[in-house]
Design a protein around this nucleic acid. Structure first.
Lengths: 159, 159
DNA sequence: ACCCAGTTGCGAATAAGTTGCAAGTACTTG
DNA sequence: CAAGTACTTGCAACTTATTCGCAACTGGGT
């Protein structure tokens, strides 16, 4: 894959809608992995490709996407890679009650609103948690981790 | 803790029956169950007894407590009763990431802070969520359900 | 006391992950 | 560019938390 190793995709052909810089991002992440002694494998590349799709993904979904290109990639491999990527803080894992965990590339830290009825997940900026965070800290000495959980409730449509 | 929480308002038609200590509370709840066509069984009484202990309990723990008195009560029975009690809004079920759900008697609605390190669960008054709740509603039309989730993070000791 | 819907015990099933291990392979080094 | 050695993978079996099917049991209204 002759991808370019930079995240910033500078277009030489003017201000246009261009192909998303997915290859570049994947290569960057793989470079990070290699720096830590990891390897840039085919499966890993495909898993990252799936994660680049916007939204929150369950492990099964990621595996399904990956298998379109490489049918032999095992679900276990997907899980192991997601664990690794989470350790490297490249992806965030979000739990919604006891449903399967969802994963997404870590970019801006944000909270999640998960509809109990239709299952949709909406993002909420970190600032929305400022008050809560402060109360937890000052009154309980508790440091909140934003990206590991989703707040259940009912979305606008399902009320 | 200040004062006695009035767990169940069994105001059938007369004046509200003030619940004596624990037995009274259990009887009140069982009365509610009977009104709905349910039965006051031995297992049910013991499960409620376990739930009356303050704190948040996992199903296994409740079963263990119950079995000290009635060794034959099956874990399945505990789960089924907890489901039923949750439907009746007598208990709240709280999820902490993918760990076992915890249950507690529904009294005052409150949020939860769950330490990722030591597993302890702390309560947070509903008011702490006011800002968050409002932002979720005004900006996303999203209605937050407080009692079904816990916010992960690190407690004062584990930081 | 009787009856029957509500409950229970038990075994088996499920869903979502995790783990052990041998085979495979990406990189570093020579 | 061949070799060695970690790092990875595929697969099967296991685990944990919870649910289901079903026959046996039982609380409590009549």
């Amino acid at each position: 894959m002759a991808g370019r190793p930079s995240i910033v995709e500078v277009n030489s052909e003017g201000p246009v809608v261009q192909a998303p810089p997915t290859d570049g991002v994947i290569d960057d992440i793989l470079a990070t992995l290699r720096q830590r002694g990891g390897r840039a494998t085919h499966a890993r590349r495909l898993i990252l490709g799936a994660l680049l799709q916007p939204g929150h993904h369950r492990a099964e979904e990621i595996a399904a996407v990956v298998r379109k290109q490489a049918p032999d990639v095992h679900l276990t491999t997907v899980y192991r890679n997601l664990d690794e990527l989470e350790r490297l803080r490249i992806v965030d894992r979000t739990y919604v009650s006891h449903s399967p965990a969802t994963f997404h590339l870590a970019s801006v830290t944000h909270g999640h609103l998960a509809c109990q009825v239709c299952g949709s997940i909406d993002d909420l900026p970190a600032e929305a948690f400022a008050t809560l965070r402060e109360i937890a800290m000052t009154e309980h000495g508790f440091q909140i981790t934003l990206d590991r959980f989703a707040i259940p409730g009912r979305c606008a449509q399902c009320q």
